[in-house]
């Protein structure tokens, strides 16, 4: 019996330790180190010196930081509205059995997800191009004089960049919501229809509430996805024009690898981490407390 216990312990260690050790070394330890480094004055080379909240003081006084936080929230808002909003509309329509060509529509909505983000960003760079881009050419062909310098004007830049991300990953949200709708038993609707509900009412009263858990998950990935977006800015605008498309992630990258201000970069990284945690906890608190079972 005792022998068996020991064997079990060894087995548990064999099964779990490789993953736990790797995860601790490469994810958890660096997170703690980021928070610690944020309290240091350090350029990565010389001896670091402890400065408590100096980096944070500087950060909160930095206009780039305010812009970066604002842009992160705009980015997240664009993703939520576009991906969850449109994703829900298309998922609800396609869940209707009488719609033909489901396979085609689902493929069309999903295909950009599997492309490399570099490909998508380069593609949209040429679509947004002010002189020769597809979009302005389209307005021209339609006889409209509505031309925009999409990526270089302060008003449209961050929204245009966020749109590209929203466009690329709509398919994920669409598929999540679609799969969730498909898993709702049919007799829920039969009951409603017999009671004389229209399909619109049925969706409002039955589908949407039953999707609470799915929406919780979608909201978390859309909001944290917006807050931690980086590639789109890096490839499409380089944070520009000026600093207008800075986000916290871009601030981290620039402070760390362009200016060697490791402490400062880690302070903005800690703020990003805190933002993501706060939103995740808030969404978990607010939505779908009770698990839905059928």
């Amino acid at each position: 019996m005792l022998h068996n216990k020991l064997n079990d312990r060894i087995a548990i260690a064999v099964f779990t330790l490789p993953a736990v050790v790797l995860f601790t070394t490469v994810v958890v330890y660096p997170v703690l180190k980021t928070v610690y480094t944020s309290l240091l004055d350090w350029d990565g080379l010389s001896q670091p010196s402890f400065m408590m909240f100096g980096n944070y003081m500087r950060l909160f006084g930095d206009p780039d930081f305010h812009l970066a936080v604002k842009n992160g929230l705009i980015f997240a808002a664009v993703l939520v509205i576009y991906q969850i909003g449109l994703g829900s509309v298309f998922a609800l329509i396609l869940s209707n059995r009488r719609i033909a060509g489901k396979r085609f529509f689902r493929t069309a909505y999903f295909v950009p997800v599997v492309l490399s983000i570099t490909v998508v960003c380069q593609l949209w760079l040429s679509i947004f191009n002010a002189d020769r881009g597809l979009l302005n050419n389209l307005f021209h062909a339609l006889g409209l004089t509505y031309r925009q310098s999409w990526l270089s004007s302060g008003k449209t830049a961050i929204v245009s960049v966020a749109f590209v991300n929203a466009w690329q990953y709509l398919g994920i949200h669409f598929s999540l919501i679609y799969a969730a709708i498909k898993s709702i038993p049919d007799h829920y609707y039969e009951a409603a229809l017999i009671d004389g509900a229209s399909s619109f009412t049925a969706h409002c009263k039955i589908t949407i509430p039953l999707l609470a858990e799915t929406y919780r998950f979608c909201l978390i990935i859309a909001i944290t996805g917006g807050l931690k977006a980086f590639e789109n800015m890096y490839i499409m605008t380089g944070g520009g024009p000026g600093n207008l498309t800075y986000t916290l992630t871009y601030l981290i990258y620039k402070a760390a690898f362009r200016m060697n201000q490791y402490g400062y970069a880690c302070a903005s990284a800690s703020v990003l981490l805190l933002q993501c945690l706060v939103f995740t906890v808030l969404i978990n608190r607010l939505i779908a407390h009770e698990r839905v079972t059928y």
């Binding site: 736990v20 997170v31 480094t37 931690k228 981290i252 990258y253 993501c276």
Partner: peptide
């Protein structure tokens, strides 16, 4: 599928990674 004292703690610990943006650990990494 194995019963041991810390199993649910280990599971929750491992799921932290879902919520850590990779950019947060750029420098330490």
């Amino acid at each position: 599928r194995m019963s041991w004292k810390l199993s649910s703690i280990a599971r929750i610990y491992m799921s932290i990674g879902m919520f850590v943006p990779v950019q947060v650990i750029f420098i330490p990494l």
